[in-house]
Structure formats: structure tokens, C-alpha cells
Amino acid sequence: MNPFAYLNKLDERRLGLVMVVPALVLMAIVAAYPVLKAIWLSLHRYNVKVPDDYAFIGLENYTRILSSETWWTAVMTTLSFGVLSVGFEFALGLVMALVMNKGLGSATGLVRVAVLVPWATITIVTALAWKWIFTPTFTFDLVNRITGLFAEESCMLCGHWTSIFAMVFADMWKTAPFIALLLLAGLQSIDQEMYEAADVDGASTMTKFLKITLPSLRPAILVALLFRSLDAMRMFDLAYVMTQGANDTATVSMVAYDFLIKRLDMGVGSAMSVLVFLMVLIVAFIFVKVLGAAPEGTDPKPSRRERKLAASQPLTVEMAH
């Protein structure tokens, strides 16, 4: 007798549930357990070096962290890096996507592969390469002349803002292609008839871009920005390699790493990780709930603006669909 015969008797909904149980169990083990354990540890005084001194201390770790200057400096650094890097990457990525979409004749394939090379490079390698490029002793004369316009003695990694800019630059080099590819996919799914109709109406290139391209790209843009912002909030490798946190350039992840891995302070380190997690969660919330970003394949509820729009102009929306 078929041991799974009973499955046939389940309705589709129940069957679905049974089918996802193994995946859920796996998720619980690799995702939920560590997260819950970190939250639990964050409520304790616990240094691996002195395992006997283990005690529940409630929210003390959090009050210590939130009242420390180091933490807020790291938050500001992380946010500055996040806003600048995502902003520049989006602008550059959009330009790259538009160029690739226009078609470069026989070079199209080559260009698409070429822009992906930085994206495929391991971040640590990227970081080391840019660290050397930004180190006046070991770099090219031309780079020194350019960086000399911004930084004292051409040393980009010797000051707070120049260091942040150097990291933004390295990040941009690496991830603008990623944004470009996401946007390119969006661009290619735009119905060409809309452009043709606009041409008939005599719309300028700028008008077409603002009224057709950008609105149609909105879902792709939001997803790209969401991914990049989440990445930026937990940036670690660039700062770790390029500055070691000098000149107040330690990001929140780096400060958490200092406590968890270097000082072996599981309590404070876990509390910091939980705070980083919350920061990421807030950013994700803003993107998904307020701006209405949704990955491909999901069926997002319309955002407030869209619902309002739908209510006020039922006919237009109907037609657009």
C-alpha cells in the first residue's frame, strides 16, 4: 500500500501545507533559531572568556549601547554610507541600463558581460584593490592628482568624509552593474507601443522618459533600491579592509563584530546584532509597506497612493490595465 495515499485525501490547501513543512523546519533551524538565540543572548551578561559570569540582565546591554557615542557615530556612518552609495549607484545604474537597452550593435553582448565583471568580484578583493588605489604611496600618479583635489596629501583614507567617499566609490564600482541589470530587465518589459503612441503625440525624449520609462520602471527601481539599501545597512567588508574603522568610519556591523568576535562579549555583541537587524527591518518596512516594493512573482497589495488613485480615477486605471 502506498504510504502517502492519505495525501490524496487532503484538499489542496492542506496538501500545500504538508508539502512546505520540510522547508519550514529547515528555515526554523537555519534562520529562526539563530535569530531567537541572538535575542536571548542579548538579554544576558555573557563573555565566552568568563563563562561562569552568566546572568540575565534584561535590557541593560541595550541601554549601554544606545547611550554610547560610539554606537551613534557608527549609525551615522552607516546611514551616510547607505544614502550616498545607494543614491550614486542608482544614478549610475540607470544610465548604464539605458545605454545597454538602446543596444550597442554588435557590442551589446560584450558590454553586458563587461559590466558584470565588477559585480562578480569578491568584495574583499574589491576592497583591497581600492584600498591600494587610494593609497598615495602605491597608486598611479594620475589617481594621486585627482584625489589631491579632495584630500590632503592625496590620502583619501586619512579623513572621515574622504574615507566614506572612497568606500562609496568602491561600492559603486562593484554594485552599480547589479542595479543596471535589474533595471535593464524592467526596461525590456516596457511595452514599445507606448513609446510609439507617444511619438505620434509628438512627445519629447524627456517627456517620454519621465512619463513612460520611469513610471513603468517603478517596481524594478524599488526592488533594486530595497536590495541595495539592505546591503548598505549591514556593510562590513569595505570598512574592515579599507579603513579598519579609523576616523570614525566603523559601521554598525563592524562595531558588533568588534564585540562579538574580538572581545567575545556575546551579550553586547548580540544586542548590537539585534539592533542592526531592527535597522534593516525598518528600511525593509519603509520600502515594502510605504513605497510598495515587491519582488517579482508576488502580488502586492496596492499602496495607499495607488488605492487613492484607483478610487479617484477608476476609469483611467482600468484602461491602463
Binding site: T135, P136, T137, E152, E153, C155, L157, C158, T243, A246
Partner: peptide, 9 residues
């Protein structure tokens, strides 16, 4: 300028 700034890295 006995030591260049880059020595801080």
C-alpha cells in the same frame, strides 16, 4: 611633513 599622512593607514 617628516611623515606623510598616509602613514596613518
Amino acid at each position: 611633513k617628516v611623515t606623510p599622512k598616509v602613514v596613518t593607514t
